[in-house]
Computed example of a mutant assay.
Amino acid sequence: MRRTPYRGRRSLPADYDETVRRNVREQDDDARPAIKGRLPSLDGYDTVLLGSPIWNVRAPMIMTTFAEQLDFRGRTVVPFTTHAMSGLGTTARDYARSCLGARIAPGLAVRGEEVADADTDIQTWLRERGLAGS
């Protein structure tokens, strides 16, 4: 498995098709885009929600960068995503690989076009995981 730092453009493209091409390149290269700044400690947290869009059936590669740099041992990771048509995509499998020692809980996927109307589904999902009041 090759893991290469992303050496492409540093700023995000404004054009949708260009964004898709960049994402495909990063996935094909198994890239680890750099994260600017210091990552937080997970000390004191038993449950960590990881949210992202789904691009080409998986979370953006920067989410792998993020997950690989933190200590998830003994924690529960709860993925949530927005998507156009692929639901959670491969997030459970990908986070199982990159969030070493974590338990991956059932995630939530919301279609991007339906986010504004998803409050009831989100609240139900949070309650089912013990993450919101009744």
Rank of each mutant, 00 (worst) to 15 (best):
Asp119Ala: 14
Met61Gly: 04
Asp43Thr: 15
Gln27Leu: 04
Asn56Ser: 06
Glu128Phe: 07
Tyr6Arg: 00
Glu18Gln: 07
Gln123Phe: 15
Gly8Thr: 14
Arg58Asp: 05
Ser98Trp: 12
Thr64Asp: 12
Glu68Phe: 06
Met61Asn: 06
Asp71Cys: 02
Ala96Tyr: 12
Gly44His: 13
Gln123Met: 15
Val115Ile: 07
Gly51Val: 13
Pro60Phe: 15
Pro60Gln: 07
Gly8Ser: 14
Ile54Asn: 06
Leu88Asp: 06
Ala59Val: 08
Leu50Met: 09
Arg127Gln: 10
Trp55Glu: 04
Ser11His: 12
Thr65His: 08
Phe80His: 08
Ser52Lys: 02
Ser41Asn: 10
Pro79Gly: 01
Arg75Phe: 04
Met63Thr: 13
Arg127Pro: 00
Ala92Arg: 11
Gly101Trp: 08
Gly74Arg: 04
Lys36Met: 11
Gly37Gln: 07
Pro33Glu: 06
Trp55Gly: 00
Ile54Ala: 05
Ala102Val: 02
Leu49His: 01
Arg38Asn: 09
Asp17Leu: 03
Asp71Trp: 13
Tyr6Gln: 00
Ala67Asn: 10
Arg129Cys: 00
Asp71Pro: 00
Glu114Leu: 07
Thr47Gly: 08
Trp55Cys: 00
Cys99Glu: 01
Arg73Met: 06
Arg25Met: 09
Thr124Met: 10
Tyr6Pro: 02
Pro5Glu: 14
Leu49Arg: 05
Ala59Gly: 00
Thr124Gln: 14
Thr81Asn: 10
Arg3Met: 15
Trp125Glu: 02
Arg58Asn: 07
Arg73Gln: 13
Gln123Ala: 15
Val48Ser: 07
Pro13Ala: 09
Trp55Gln: 04
Gly89Cys: 01
Asp46Asn: 15
Gly101Arg: 01
Ser52Trp: 14
Gly107Thr: 02
Val48Trp: 04
Thr76Trp: 09
Arg25Asp: 06
Leu126Lys: 01
Ser98His: 15
Thr4Ala: 13
His83Ile: 00
Trp55Arg: 09
Thr120Gly: 09
Ser41Tyr: 13
Leu70Gln: 13
Gly130Tyr: 00
Ser134His: 09
Arg111Thr: 03
Arg22Asp: 02
Asp121Arg: 13
Gln123His: 15
Tyr16Lys: 06
Thr65Ala: 11
Leu12Gly: 06
